[in-house]
């Protein structure tokens, strides 16, 4: 029997106004995407603190996907300016410490981009599947 494929756990932080609505659109359009993603709806991607992302990795997430409105479309005008600053910084810091490289992804998906949503989730899940379980999860616990 073929070995079972690794099923990663992915946490998605999606903004209420754009990406979450985009996910809705993907749903009502009956677009298929992998069920590995667990979605947490937030009012704005700017409310996602890097702490939450780190906490997700600590708790065993293999990937974290953050979705927000395109720059200029933020419901709160400038919320996503903060998102991109924080997340780009966090991506580089995680890379430096060798914790996770490429397991944190930020994508702007609008409410009208249902197909893009399905596409992004599909590609991200594929990528994480290839990477396998996260280092943090595999790391031996100190006694």
């Amino acid at each position: 029997m073929a070995e079972k494929e690794y099923e990663p756990k992915i946490i998605g932080f999606f903004c209420n106004w754009c990406t979450y609505a985009g996910a809705d659109l993907a749903g009502v359009s009956r677009l298929q995407y992998p069920p590995n993603i667990r979605v947490i709806r937030v009012m704005c991607s700017g409310t996602v603190s890097p702490h939450h992302v780190l906490r997700a990795f600590q708790k065993g997430a293999d990937g974290v996907l953050i979705g927000g409105c395109h720059i200029g479309d933020c419901h709160y005008l400038k919320g996503n300016y903060m998102t991109i600053k924080r997340m780009t910084f966090l991506q580089d810091l995680l890379k430096f410490t060798g914790f996770e490289d490429g397991r944190l992804h930020l994508e702007w998906i609008s409410a009208a981009e249902g197909p893009k949503f399905a596409q992004v989730v599909r590609e991200f899940t594929e990528k994480i599947k290839k990477l396998g379980p996260s280092r943090l999860k595999l790391a031996p616990k100190a006694a």
Partner: peptide, 17 residues
């Protein structure tokens, strides 16, 4: 500090997957 204020138009781009 860049973390202190929201700032003007953002020119940063998301990283490719």
């Amino acid at each position: 500090s860049p973390w202190k204020f929201l700032g003007d138009e953002s020119t940063m781009e998301t990283k490719p997957m």
